[in-house]
Computed example of a mutant assay.
Amino acid sequence: MALSLYVDSARWRKHIDQLAGTYPGIVPVMKGNGYGFDNARLAEEASRMGVDTVAVGTTYEAARVKDHFDGRVMVLTPHLRGEDAVPLPDRVIRTVASVQSVRDLVGTRVVVSCMTSMKRDGITQEDLMALRGSLEGVRFEGFSVHLPLDHPDGGSPTDEVSQWVERLGAAKLPLHTMYVSHVSATGLNTLRERHPHTTFRPRIGTDLWLGDHGAMVARGTVLDVVPIARGERFGYRQRKAPSDGHLLVVSGGTAHGVGLEAPKTVRGVMPRAKGVARAGLATVNRTLSPFSWAGKQRWFAEPPHMQVSLLFLPGEVAPPQPGEQLDAELRHTTTHFDRVVLH
């Protein structure tokens, strides 16, 4: 049985279409695991939306997505000199983050990334004069800016984009299109008013595909229910059961991304206190699973296995039957579902 993602397709698509209407010129982003849906499915959804361009993370993803979407495919990871050559169609757009990369891609469609407060990649103001002479050999599609999600110092994403528009204009570079990430609809409207001769195209992934959490639910299938007595040993590491109860064997393990978590930025006293509490429980082998039963999130009995998780259910709680499903709170960008069910 499977770790499944169930999607209310009508509600999901209503959100997608509403957001696309709010962001004219949207470029849907599909990368990695396709936000839990798979990139091929999202590419087909982009075709339904009628967009002319999508964005992917890598050239390898572009090679897969091209068979499911007929328009332009933008690769967000900047070109690296000496990278593996991946056969791609002419409609693929490469991102470049240096003048040298522009020179390496003669005849190719390119978008030039500008360095922002993200400090991740991009050309700098000092590169602009050299860039002007290098664009003649490529098929220039525009510039791009990738902004941070948080602005703790009060910086304005709109102003940061505007500053780049002004720099590029002062350098007399062709500024017909600017692709932007992490700018609000209000901010985009402000940019269009300030710079009417530039087309601003928002690249959106998470808010587009996962913006309506109520439209989807993840569930793991109960594969077995094993009675266990207090002190009885179980599992790979032969731990002792803390009390009488049941072990639940549930679809979904490390191969799916269950139990795996990316580091988080923690701010504030309460979030830090909760983090310390979780770490303390983990040192005594107490870790909450993402699976819930009878209205409560249940504990892992031991670390998840490759394709299943072992949960402990106290004896006073009536267990599920094999074949029943447990709701799961999973991070979609790190979870690989066995199946996605649109209904």
Rank of each mutant, 00 (worst) to 15 (best):
W209I: 04
Y179P: 07
A97P: 00
V106Y: 03
T221K: 11
L19I: 10
V73W: 02
P303F: 09
K14I: 07
V249P: 05
F143S: 07
R167G: 00
S144T: 13
R201G: 05
M216S: 12
G169S: 10
A85G: 02
R230I: 12
A55W: 00
G315N: 06
F234E: 11
A130N: 13
V258D: 08
S4E: 13
A218P: 01
R233C: 06
R139K: 14
A62C: 04
E44W: 01
F312E: 06
A20R: 07
Y236A: 15
D121R: 09
R91M: 07
R120V: 02
V145D: 02
V106H: 11
Y35T: 02
D67H: 15
V180H: 07
A318I: 11
D207W: 11
G169W: 09
L42Q: 04
D212I: 03
T177S: 13
V269L: 13
L76V: 10
E329K: 12
T221V: 13
A215M: 03
M30A: 14
L313V: 10
D17H: 11
T22Q: 15
K14N: 13
A215G: 03
V340I: 08
Q125G: 07
L19P: 03
K264C: 01
G295T: 03
R239L: 15
F143E: 02
E302P: 13
L260S: 07
N39K: 09
G187A: 10
R81E: 10
G71Y: 09
I228V: 15
W293I: 08
E302T: 07
P152F: 09
P304C: 08
R13T: 04
L5W: 06
G280C: 13
G268N: 04
V73P: 01
T287R: 14
A2Q: 10
L188C: 04
A279V: 01
P152N: 09
K274D: 11
E126I: 02
H182V: 14
G252L: 05
T58P: 03
S117K: 13
D121H: 15
T22L: 15
D244W: 04
R192G: 01
R286S: 09
W299L: 15
R139P: 05
